[in-house]
Structure formats: structure tokens, C-alpha cells
Amino acid sequence: MTEEISPMTEAESPLVEASTTPDATLAASDVVLEAVGVTKRFGAVVALRGIDMQLRRGEVLGLVGDNGAGKSTLVKILCGFHPPDTGKIYVEGKEVSFRSVADARGFGIETVYQDLALVPQLTVAQNLFLNREITLFGKVGWLSAGKMRRLAKKYLEDIKVEIPDIDAEAESLSGGQRQAIAVARATRQNAKILLLDEPLAAMGARESALIVDLVKDLSRNRGVSMIVIDHNYTHLFELCDRINVIQQGRIALDQQVKDTSVEELTKFMVSEYRRELAAGQQLLEQ
């Protein structure tokens, strides 16, 4: 948080290493979501100083950065929660401006929160169809429960999510199962781009495997693109194809996972941190 309030950071642009994409050869149509020069400020606090980011079809992109580096702000802009101050957002090459989360959802962009997403007292099937219920008699909204159960079961089988009981209340499921249901709901409702916030947080190895498999399956076989925010590098390396490091409201590093390692990323983050610290000290001395 502190580094954002510091007024001098505005002037230290040379610190930023690289924001050009390494695979410039890819066709433009493969970019499903793009942010160009996105800035955002909350009063005196500058959260984003010009983000250039691209997400390709079927790609899993990891976002890392310290608390307050701006990654949550970026995600909130991408999902339509905040409008950007300046800069442009493109979906499938077309410029868009989201007025609301529902607006972004209309473009197939959906955020998945682990525990926020499900209603604990509703069943798996009811959660999967939440606010997209199948009903009879139009306006009356009489639920077609049997049909929803069947479709929910089939869909979960299709994406290979094993839930022992479709009528179980979400409350009785494990964290991994809940996360899987949340992701399944988003994709079932035609989300093409998923924003995942710490999808593997507080999960055991078997639970994690469930989600990793689901994420891989959705991205490879169904062309769903995903942005994953996580503090945990191991999680990110398990899930992602590419990683962007956000620092002080900018993309400071853009690397394919296969070209880097947890060690390298850690080293980069530490050196950046040292540099900030030094800059801060300098400021204090002046």
C-alpha cells in the first residue's frame, strides 16, 4: 500500500522491465482480452499506472504482486466492477466499456470466488443454476427441478467433476468441490474468460488436483481463458501457462511459465522489493 501513496514512484518509470509480449507472432484474433494503458486512481492513491496486458484463447495467465500492487484493482476493472480512469479494454479485438459486472458477464467474463460464489444452503444443482433456473409457466417461475438435476449431473460429468451427490447442500462439500462447482457454474453459463481469485487457497493435495485438472481441462479442451491471482508461486506454476508480475500499478514482468522458475520469480520480486526500499530510503533522506 505504502509504495502507491509515495509520490516519487510516478517518476521512476525506468524501473519497469518489460511489458512487451514475448509471442508477438500470435495472430491478434487469438487475444480474447486485452488491456491497453489502463490507469486507475482512488483519491490520492494511484492503483494502476498504465497496464498493458493480453490474455489469449485457452490460456491460463497468472497475476502476482504484493498486496496493494494493483492486481485486485486490475481484476475488478476487467470484471466490470470498477471503470478504468483512462486506457482501453478489448474483448475479442473489439473495444468495450463495462458499466457493471453484469455488463462484463454479457461479454463472457466471469469472476469466481471460492466461498462467495455458492449459497451454502442450496444443493449442488440449485447452485449450478442459480439465477439461470429452468422454469415452467414462464412468469410464474415454477422450478423444473428434475430437469435441472439431470442437466447439472450431465454437465459435471462432461467436465469430469466428481460430486457424489447432486442433491447435497453446498455446505457439506469440501473446499475443492465448492471451488469446482463455482468454476463449473461460470463455464456452464457460457463464461469464456474466468477470473479466479486464489483458487487453490487452503486446499490439500487431492483437493488442489481436482481444481488443477479442471482448469487444465477447461483451457485445453474448451478454450476457456483464465486469469488467476495468487500469492503462492507453486500454485501459479501448477496452474498457469504465463505469469505477469504487477508492481506499483504496472506489469513489471511477463514470462511464459516454461521459460522461468519459482526461484527466478522469487529473485525478481526480492530485487524489486530491495530497489523500492532503497528508493524509499532515498526519499526519506532528502
Binding site: V101, A102, R105, T111, Y113, L116, A117, L118, V119, P120, Q121, L122, Q126, L130, N131, R132, E133, T135, V140, G141, W142, L143, A145
Partner: peptide, 24 residues
């Protein structure tokens, strides 16, 4: 128990944020 409205009542009381998030 049998209508969309009722389900939304339960959802709203069970997890207000999730319900609002889903567009209810």
C-alpha cells in the same frame, strides 16, 4: 420451495453476496 422466487429468497438469505453476484 417450488418457484424461482423462493429459491432466490433462500439464496439471498443464505449468501447475500453470492446471490447479488449471480444477478439476483
Amino acid at each position: 420451495k417450488r418457484t424461482r422466487f423462493g429459491l432466490h429468497v433462500t439464496a439471498t438469505g443464505g449468501n447475500l453476496l453470492a446471490a447479488a453476484e449471480s444477478g439476483i
